[in-house]
Write a protein that binds this DNA or RNA. Structure first.
Length: 712
DNA sequence: GAATGATCATTTTA
DNA sequence: CTAAAATGATCATT
């Protein structure tokens, strides 16, 4: 059966000439199907697209056949195993197969009502369902309903509405409903506050269906805020519940329901507002920016009209990173199809050529671009994944293999389109620098801190001959002078480290009742001041509330920039809220009125644009208690190399550590957004009060869209 | 046929 | 390790 699939009916040559397939570029002719904002090609950006508007000469020009499964484009047989066992998908005896009929794929309606109308309907469905719980359940779950009061619940929960078999009996319980509504209002109003302050209330249909850089970054920021807030609330409540919840999904659902998403109209090729190399930490993040719509499935696809018929084409895949064998350069990916395993009992079946598998097969023959998102193990977190957008690939071939259970599994070989910025391959290089199998080009010093930090910091120059920055003494922490406190602090008594939801922890209380860091050590507090545990606290050094005291957590490198002197960047990915470093140096007195002539100054008294328009502070105690000016000219750490940007990816927070009658103030830097490896770390130096005139003003080279043109 | 409701498939996350 | 989660495609029904 190796033959017969192609020859007779496949046109003159009997095999597909790959170059011709590529030459035809069938999908270019489909451009009208994917309306895009002017100037935004839906197809691979680096490719020249001179004939975008050429009318189609037909859906299947000569030499390009309709779909034959498992025929490689070059005509070699890629069908090692028999498929005729599956009469549903293949024609008898290996003749022309009959895949799932194309008309079974629903026509996507015009893009404007495609996504949004459906989601409207979904929410209507939910809202209209009665929430009725019988008396027994109510009394049984008295405790639970108390949790709703103290904790949070978005609405009177999908879980109850969706899965309870008891929901139709009994009368609605007012009290329960009220409780639920009250709580719903809390999260609802929280969300509304976010949306208002980020001006997402009047999020228009255009930005919803097609994004841009600012839109995606705002949406991701709001998602992160919301997710963190839900995490915080949930953790504080976990003593009561003790069940794992999914703040990532809940935050996503809330935003989706509000229509706060972008690129909701599906498209082939790049997604506006998402750049090759961007990283994500949750599948939901991929959904809300439209990079990959399914929340769980690994293959995203859409129906594409081809004259009368419609066929699915693949849009993007998320590789889980488990069993992919990639090429040496990281530009090849072998992807396994979906299905074939019963989730309940783990029983395996042959995979079927339907859904995503069929779409990939079609995309192989249509030669359209497929976005690839690489899922990698997060070495920092224990279980988490990092998703790297690795740009566009083309499917080169497909075949089927038998797995251990003797079931057919589809395999798709994807090859990265050349000319795109480095993404996944960069990760591979970095790994090699770390394990010593490859040398970092331009390396001057393996560790400029000479062991002063917990991790080495490389000094690298791959742009010119400068051998390093001017001499300074590396110190890992601020020589902070204690400030007297009004109230003596005894410190907390958390022997095993501070835990969320512990109302007896005095450090938690100082932070408005919530620990400012998540279990992964990521900043989740929005307060403008962080109270960490101090000398008199009994908790151990690895306490979650001592993040800024525990030294570097990411592998940094000081590097020579093209035009801004030395800069700082990270070999490791940093998630939003991740701790980077503190600002070390000497606290300098400015009250003598001395002019500070120093390029290594941190000055908390400058005015800063608030990062979050939403202030969570409940009291004045969370305001910066005293101004601080730090010089890192003679003594400093990596922070002194961080350049200014008007659109920064790092921000600072004042951190207080109290002990007895003294308070130590430190300045800690955290990631504003997810930062991919090797992206320069920058923060906003702030603006000097106007009465000081233009002194110290410098021309800004940050090149961001928000650039003020100068900095201090 | 169109509109709607119900179910299913997917796999990540804690 | 297991359970639970959300979306969108598909199926079923009106």
């Amino acid at each position: 059966m190796e033959h017969g699939t192609g020859s007779g009916s496949n046109g003159p040559s009997g095999s597909i000439d790959k170059s011709r397939v590529l030459d035809v570029r069938p999908l270019r002719t489909l451009v009208p199907v994917f309306p895009n904002p002017a100037g935004m090609s839906s197809v691979s950006t680096p490719q020249p697209t001179p004939f975008v508007c050429v009318p189609p000469s037909g859906p299947f020009p000569t030499g390009v056949q309709p779909f034959y499964p498992f025929m490689a484009p070059n005509g070699t047989q890629q069908t090692p195993h028999s498929f005729q066992n599956d009469p549903g998908n293949f024609g008898p005896g290996g003749s022309i197969p009959a895949p799932v009929p194309l008309n079974s794929f629903r026509t996507p309606t015009s893009h404007e009502n495609g996504g949004s109308s459906r989601s409207k309907r979904a929410s209507k469905t939910r809202a209209s369902r009665p929430v009725i719980i019988d008396d027994d359940e109510y009394s049984d779950s008295q405790n639970q309903s108390d949790q709703y009061v103290s904790g949070f619940s978005m609405h009177v929960t999908d879980a109850e509405v969706g899965s309870s078999s008891r929901k139709r009996r009994g009368r609605p319980l007012k009290r329960r409903a009220e409780n639920g509504n009250e709580v719903e209002y809390d999260v609802e109003s929280l969300l509304n506050r976010f949306l208002t302050s980020f001006k997402l209330k009047e999020f228009d249909e255009f930005r919803r269906s097609s994004g841009d850089r600012e839109t995606t970054s705002t949406i991701l920021l709001v998602y992160d805020l919301l997710r963190k807030k839900l995490t915080q609330l949930e953790e504080a409540n976990s003593l009561n519940i003790g069940i794992a919840r999914r703040p990532d999904l809940k935050a996503g659902t809330l935003l989706m329901k509000k229509g706060v998403r972008t690129n909701s109209s599906k498209r082939i090729g790049h997604v506006p507002g998402v750049e090759v190399g961007d990283i994500f930490f949750f599948r939901m993040e991929l959904c809300i920016v439209g990079l990959h719509a399914p929340t769980m499935a690994g293959i995203d696809y859409m129906g594409v009209k081809i004259t009368m018929d419609e066929e699915p084409v693949a849009l993007s895949i998320v590789s889980s990173g488990g069993y992919d064998d990639d090429g040496e350069a990281g530009d090849v990916l072998v992807y396994s199809g979906q299905g074939g395993v019963q989730r309940r009992d783990g029983q395996m079946f042959d995979q079927k050529l339907e859904r995503g598998n069929l779409a990939l097969e079609k995309s192989l023959h249509r030669a359209n671009d497929v976005r690839v998102i690489r899922g990698l193990k997060d070495l920092n977190g224990t279980t988490g994944k990092i998703y790297v957008y690795d740009g566009l690939y083309k499917i080169q071939e497909s075949w089927a293999e038998k797995n251990k259970s003797e079931c057919n599994v589809f395999k798709y070989k994807l090859v990265r389109i050349p000319g795109q910025p480095q993404a996944f391959s960069l990760w591979k290089s970095i790994q090699q620098w770390k394990d010593g199998t490859a040398a970092r080009e331009g390396l001057i010093l393996p560790d400029l801190t000479s062991g002063a930090e917990s991790l080495p910091v490389s000094l690298v120059n791959d742009v010119d001959n400068e051998k390093g920055p001017a001499h300074f003494t590396y110190v890992s922490t601020l020589k902070s002078k204690p400030f007297p406190t009004s109230k003596p602090s005894l410190g907390c008594q958390c022997m095993g480290g501070c835990q969320p939801g512990d109302s007896s922890c005095s450090c938690t209380q100082s932070n408005d009742g919530f620990l400012p860091y998540s279990s992964l050590g990521v900043l989740i507090s929005n307060n403008s001041l962080i109270h960490e545990c101090g000398l008199t606290c009994v908790c151990p050094p690895n306490c979650r509330n001592r993040i800024s005291q525990t030294g570097l957590r990411v592998r940094l490198e000081v590097f020579k920039t093209k035009d801004r002197g030395w800069g700082l960047r990270s070999w490791d990915p940093i998630r939003a809220g991740g701790f980077i470093c503190e600002y070390a140096g000497e606290v300098i007195k400015d009250d003598l009125g001395n002019e500070i002539d120093d390029d290594y100054i941190f000055d908390s008294t400058r005015s800063y644009e608030p990062l979050e328009a939403v202030s969570e502070d409940s009291s004045d105690s969370n305001k910066l208690p005293f101004p601080i000016v730090i010089s890192a000219k003679n003594n400093g750490n990596v922070a002194r190399f961080m350049n200014h940007s008007c659109l920064p990816n790092v921000h600072w927070k004042p951190v207080l550590r109290e002990s007895n009658n003294e308070t130590y103030l430190h300045i800690a830097f955290f990631a504003i957004r997810h930062i991919p490896p090797m992206q320069e770390l920058t923060f906003d130096y702030g603006v000097v009060a106007s009465e000081k005139g233009d002194q110290g003003k410098k021309k800004c080279l940050c090149e961001s869209v928000k650039c003020r043109g100068f900095f201090y």
